[in-house]
Design a protein around this nucleic acid. Sequence first.
RNA 1: CGGAGAGUGGCGCAGUCGGCUAGCGCGCACGGUUUGGGACCGUGAGGUCGCCGGUUCGAAUCCGGCCUCUCCGACCA
Length: 479
Amino acid sequence: MAKAITPRSQDFSQWYTDVVQRAQLADYSPVRGCMVIMPYGYALWENIQQALDRRFKETGHENAYFPLFIPHSFIEREAEHVEGFAPQLAVVTHGGGEKLEEPLVVRPTSEAIIGHMYAKWIKSYRDLPVLINQWCNVIRWELRTRLFLRTTEFLWQEGHTAHATYEEAEEEARRMLEVYADFAEKEAAIPVLKGRKSESEKFPGALTSYTIEAMMGDRRALQSGTSHNLGQNFAKAFNIQYLDKNNQLQYCWTTSWGMSTRIVGAIIMVHGDDQGLILPPRLAPIQVIIVPIYKDDEERSQVMEAVARLKALLGDSIRFKVDDRQEYTAGWKFNEWELRGVPLRIEIGPQDVEKEQVVLVRRDIPGKEGKRAVKPSKIRREVETLLQEVQRNLFQRALEFRNAHTHEPQNYEQFKEAVEDGFAMAYWCGEATCEKAIQEETKATNRCIPLEQSHKSSGAKCIRCGRPASERVLFARAY
RNA sequence: CGGAGAGUGGCGCAGUCGGCUAGCGCGCACGGUUUGGGACCGUGAGGUCGCCGGUUCGAAUCCGGCCUCUCCGACCA
């Protein structure tokens, strides 16, 4: 028998690693910190891409592709940017056997190269806005890596836009944050908190960074997508200028926003259980796995005939797969597809053929509760309804879990207990020194200043220092 | 970079106070019996024991050096 997955309660981190590999999402590469995304993991990523890309197109963006190599000097143009990224750069110093005149940076993000191109393309207010996205890989020399969550090379999309005014750029940055939140909640079934990053947590070179934060199954926070209003910082560094209606030369206002393969890690950690992965139906590469059951050739031909009829009844809008591998037993297949997170299973054996039914089993509800017999004639409606139901249940479950572990501590002692358990919503004076002290004393970091400042109180005080505070902050231990 | 652990058939491991032909489980191939919750029997293929050097009649095992990976902290999508 195959080795069992480490239980979540015993060692969450080991559980995560086990699931990623056993579900055949990804494998380690021979290069430290890099991963091979396997076909099943890549199919999941493709579904994520499609769901996001559709939203980008709907909001007026076009895809393009910018090169992997960036002249080293480009990175140095924006002071905060270089400071933030210098330690994580992979630099190419040789090419074709010769030392390069100027080293090339392998992009850690593309503000620099895209800024350079935008400067060339944008001349007039009539050229604005420029709304471009690219799907690509980036390299960041991370000190500590983890499959999907933080790898040296990762896949993502990065949107880069240029606008005539601050207001338009701000609107764009906020719009894309909404797009990410909508994607996370509707497609990935992950409830997120939208917020603004503090000065010390924001993107290097940004005016304002926005983020969506999600709670993982071990109650730690994961930044799952970001959107930045870059102000005129990059426009000034790369000379992105346009002539306005009054023939005055103006700097553009730019934004950038990204979501990465990290979201796969979030899906695993939010929904998975001790049996393995549980994929949200809307993103699952296989939504329904059909397992035929038979003893001999006669039964097999009977059952497979019923399976063929069933396939026709399911139509082509449901992503299903028939697992008729004869070298594995039914029980083995049940375990296999549960481990790989397929939301629904249809069992069909001789008994079912006889009774003119199939057995429909939910991945998100273990045992008998999630299991029932269905008439083939009703299968399509049943499956469609159930897929929605699983999707809804996963979201609801994650939301309840997050709420159960989100606290509003009234003093610093309570605060320490709160971040031990999960999220803490607390007032903060806004000083970086206090932020840093909190991190050192509790390991919790300032995740974001939620956009929805619910109970605003006038006489609020900083949870740590007691000085007057105006903003409520989400603090949590984070990935 | 600091701390911990590990490198032995594809995977997981045992063997490590030097000594027979390097073993076990899983997987793989072939044959047969099986198939409603990870089936079983038989036969078989598959190994420069991470790398380099040293000690020795003899090294997976002892000594020295190096490399790599994983996990925990600092950097971070």
